[in-house]
Write a protein that binds this DNA or RNA. Structure first.
Lengths: 204, 204
DNA sequence: CCTTGACTTGACCATATGGTCAGAAATTCC
DNA sequence: GGAATTTCTGACCATATGGTCAAGTCAAGG
């Protein structure tokens, strides 16, 4: 009877190192493009040792995706039906942009997955994301019906928020190349622009 | 002296079939994820025969990318400094959305490339895209200075247009899953929503 | 110190993959 | 029809890759 004892410090440390390395590699190359050797090297472990902590490449990827979904949905969950409509939407935009700035690799991991047809997370999307979006869309539609927001199809409004904010993580290379920036200063410019854009669009 | 004679019908037909198949595969799996066997099968050719027409996997990808850039930049080129500002921008939005609807694979090929750090097209971006964006941004800034457009940092305006329109191609799976659509009807809804969004944002 | 169990690794395997090559089949040209 | 040229293919190769395994190392408890 090997009952699972609490994670040892070594387990904790190495699992973290693996997931950190895997995030780096998967987000840059996609699932098929990533190799265990790359991940192992970045994690500072041997390949067999990787496979001591995770049973397969799939499992590493699955662990990352699982941890990702919650973080990715939370900003929308926080949209408060009781708040002031325009400010609630703007706060959501800011939270999403924040994620792009602070967790660009997670954003790209997600983008890679969707781009490739979402084979590993389609059920999570229809099972979790869709209901949440429908719920919040109803809230937004109500605000619009009450005249507290200018009318705009709520689903497409949400899509546009996802698109404009995630763009700064997913297309980071392009954004930097076009702006000619090295640093992250464009994020505050982006926030300013997006806040103006959505305020004008949504103020009744 | 084998001087290159004009392409035969067979060459024409097979090269096209290969590029068509490669577009399908590269756009779905990225460069590293795609395999010559997949491309060969989709093109209805044997792998050695593929390599009779193109010297390497790289070359096939390069041929696709080269053909892509022009199509991708043209809609922005058409932005006319002599036109009516708001309508010019809206026409640009419509053209970009049109591309997402009609050439989603090309959009995803591009997205894959950028996501993975744009190793094969970064120079094209800084060499062609950036100057074009800077030029058109100047036009837009001028319109804003003249009071013919509401002010908004032009580069970020353009980013937002790219993001919102390409989203419908790149994140197609997610869009469909959230909306629950099978068909393409959401494209006309998207156009309506984006036109409203940018009209409100930009009308002085 | 020594046993126990967690941790680590070199060597290895089967398969996939990009690419080559000699020659066969088709096509074109005279 | 037959030579010349283009098109095509089976067999093959070197390397990369996900994964296994037996045996080793190491840390902690007794």
């Amino acid at each position: 009877m090997t009952r699972p004892r609490a994670q040892t410090r070594i387990q904790q440390k190495n699992s973290e190192a693996i997931l950190e390395a895997a995030l780096e590699v998967f987000s840059q190359s996609g699932f098929r493009g990533a190799t265990l050797d790359q991940i192992a090297e970045k994690a500072g472990l041997s390949k067999p040792n990787l496979l001591y902590y995770f049973p397969s490449k799939e499992a590493i990827h699955a662990a990352l995706i699982a941890g990702l979904l919650k973080v990715w949905l939370d900003p929308l969950r926080e949209l408060d039906a009781g708040g002031e409509p325009v400010e609630e939407i703007l706060a959501y935009v800011r939270r999403k942009l924040q994620l792009s700035r602070d967790f660009p690799r997670e954003s790209r991991l997600f983008a890679n997955e969707i781009l490739q047809g979402a084979p590993r997370i389609l059920e999570a999307i229809t099972g979790e994301l869709k209901p949440l979006v429908d719920e919040k869309s109803a809230v937004i539609a109500k605000w619009m019906a009450e005249g507290r927001l200018a009318p705009l199809e709520p689903h497409h409004l949400i899509f546009s928020i996802w698109a404009t904010t995630q763009h700064y993580a997913d297309f980071d290379v392009q954004v930097r190349a076009v702006l000619g920036h090295e640093d992250d200063r464009h994020f505050s410019q982006a926030e300013e622009a997006l806040v103006i854009l959505y305020r004008r669009t949504l103020t009744p």
